[in-house]
Lab assay of single mutants.
Amino acid sequence: KYFGTAKARYDFCARDRSELSLKEGDIIKILNKKGQQGWWRGEIYGRVGWFPANYVEEDYS
């Protein structure tokens, strides 16, 4: 189950295995919004990890 999707506004390079690298334009499935302050958990291309919420724009459609 996921909470919708978000589109990456910027590139983000994961610093460890718990984080999710993003490329601008990627569409991420949002799995959890209750991580550390400002971090969401998501899935993209079969990978799961945490990413900074301010790097994405949530899709409300």
Score class of each variant (00 low, 15 high):
Lys1Ile: 03
Lys1Ser: 10
Lys1Arg: 04
Lys1Ala: 06
Lys1Phe: 11
Tyr2Lys: 07
Phe3Gln: 11
Phe3Val: 13
Phe3Gly: 08
Gly4Phe: 07
Thr5Cys: 11
Ala6Thr: 01
Lys7Thr: 14
Lys7Arg: 13
Ala8Ser: 05
Arg9Gln: 08
Arg9Thr: 12
Tyr10Ser: 14
Tyr10Ile: 12
Asp11Ile: 03
Asp11Cys: 09
Cys13Asn: 15
Cys13Gln: 15
Cys13Ile: 12
Cys13Gly: 08
Cys13Leu: 13
Ala14Val: 01
Arg15Tyr: 06
Asp16Ser: 14
Arg17Trp: 09
Ser18Arg: 11
Glu19Leu: 04
Glu19Gln: 12
Glu19Val: 01
Leu20Ser: 02
Ser21Ala: 09
Lys23Asp: 04
Lys23Ser: 11
Lys23Thr: 09
Glu24Val: 14
Gly25Ala: 03
Asp26Ile: 04
Asp26His: 00
Ile27Tyr: 08
Ile27Pro: 05
Ile27Gln: 09
Ile27Asn: 11
Ile27Leu: 10
Ile28Arg: 00
Ile28Ala: 04
Leu31Lys: 07
Leu31Gly: 02
Leu31Glu: 04
Asn32Ser: 15
Asn32Trp: 09
Lys33Cys: 03
Lys33Gln: 05
Lys34Thr: 11
Lys34His: 13
Gly35Pro: 09
Gly35Ile: 07
Gly35Ser: 12
Gly35Asn: 07
Gly35Cys: 11
Gly35Leu: 06
Gln36Ile: 12
Gln36Ala: 13
Gln36Ser: 10
Gln37Ala: 13
Gln37Lys: 13
Gln37Ser: 14
Gln37Thr: 11
Gln37Phe: 10
Gly38Lys: 09
Gly38Met: 02
Gly38Cys: 03
Gly38Glu: 06
Trp39Val: 05
Trp39Phe: 07
Trp40Lys: 07
Trp40Ala: 00
Trp40Asp: 03
Trp40His: 02
Trp40Gln: 01
Arg41Gln: 15
Gly42Cys: 01
Gly42Lys: 00
Gly42Asn: 03
Glu43Thr: 07
Glu43His: 00
Glu43Trp: 02
Ile44Ser: 15
Ile44Asn: 15
Tyr45Val: 12
Tyr45Glu: 15
Gly46Ser: 07
Gly46Phe: 00
Arg47Met: 07
Arg47Trp: 01
Val48Gly: 05
Val48Pro: 03
Val48Lys: 13
Val48Ala: 11
Gly49Trp: 02
Trp50Cys: 15
Trp50Val: 06
Trp50Phe: 03
Phe51Pro: 03
Pro52Arg: 01
Pro52Tyr: 00
Pro52Asp: 01
Pro52Met: 07
Ala53Asn: 06
Ala53Met: 10
Ala53Thr: 09
Ala53Tyr: 07
Asn54Ile: 07
Asn54Trp: 12
Tyr55Cys: 15
Val56Phe: 02
Val56Thr: 02
Glu57Met: 12
Glu57Lys: 08
Asp59Ala: 10
Asp59Ile: 12
Tyr60Lys: 11
Tyr60His: 14
